[in-house]
């Protein structure tokens, strides 16, 4: 491995981390969706770089699929579904932690994922040592976004970020699972998004709100 390759890997990992932070540090559903779209584009670029470094051609196809599905199709589907919703339900007015607290918390989550990945002995492989902490950070940030937000719509975005982290995680550790599994996972996400958007639609029609706390109103006690 040449040093220039290692440097490019490091820089692209850092840029991916910044793009992930973009999902945390925004307000409003459309902003998050745009941040997610940007993050997916960066993820596709990173995947291409990993494909170039490892020299496995299947990874290029995974990168192309990431670009098409995650940065074009999924945001399209979500914007299309949410077009009929009211504006109020799209803005997450009060997450459990305020924006500034959640930014600081996410910085500590990133630190934690770096410390955790220190415990995993894969130091010899530069791809793993650079991207494993980044993928774990993505996972944790997505999880944090998921639990921090009240409306179901924004929780979907958190779920998508987690999925991006998992994708990077498997890609880095296995250097590309076989293509058929990869395609299956992508189809899975797509169907998952469609189903969750149908659920969102029904939820907003039944409760006039996407706040998950209001789901408890169903209980009859």
């Amino acid at each position: 491995m040449e040093t220039i390759q290692l440097d490019v890997l490091k820089i692209s990992g850092a840029i991916l981390l910044i793009a992930t932070f973009g999902v945390i540090a925004r307000r409003g559903f459309m902003d998050w969706l745009n941040a997610y779209r940007l993050q997916s584009v960066v993820l596709a670029v990173v995947t291409t770089i990993i494909g170039y470094v490892t020299g496995i051609w299947e990874i290029y196809i995974a990168a192309a699929l990431t670009l098409v599905i995650k940065s074009l199709v999924i945001p399209k589907v979500l914007t299309h579904v949410t077009k009929s919703l009211e504006i109020e339900s799209k803005t997450d007015a009060n997450p459990y932690l305020s924006l500034r607290t959640s930014i600081i918390v996410s910085a500590f989550l990133v630190a934690m994922s770096y410390f955790l990945s220190q415990q995993i002995p894969f130091k010899s492989d530069p791809v793993v040592s650079v991207f494993l902490p980044v993928s774990m950070a993505q996972f944790f940030l997505g999880l944090f976004a998921l639990v921090n937000r009240r409306t179901a719509l924004s929780q979907v975005v958190g779920l998508l970020v987690i999925e991006n982290g998992l994708f990077l995680f498997t890609l880095v550790l296995t250097h590309g699972v076989s293509l058929i599994i990869e395609v299956g996972i992508f189809a899975d996400i797509l169907v998952g998004i469609v189903i969750s958007s149908i659920l969102l639609f029904r939820m907003s029609r039944t409760f006039d709100s996407l706040d998950v706390d209001k789901l408890e109103n169903l209980r009859d006690d």
Partner: peptide, 21 residues
């Protein structure tokens, strides 16, 4: 305004982490 400064603090924190690891 503190939100934006929190971004700066978090960003430097992550920078420190990246330096040490």
């Amino acid at each position: 305004v503190p939100d934006l400064i929190a971004v700066a603090i978090a960003s430097s924190l992550v920078g420190l982490v990246l330096y040490y690891l």
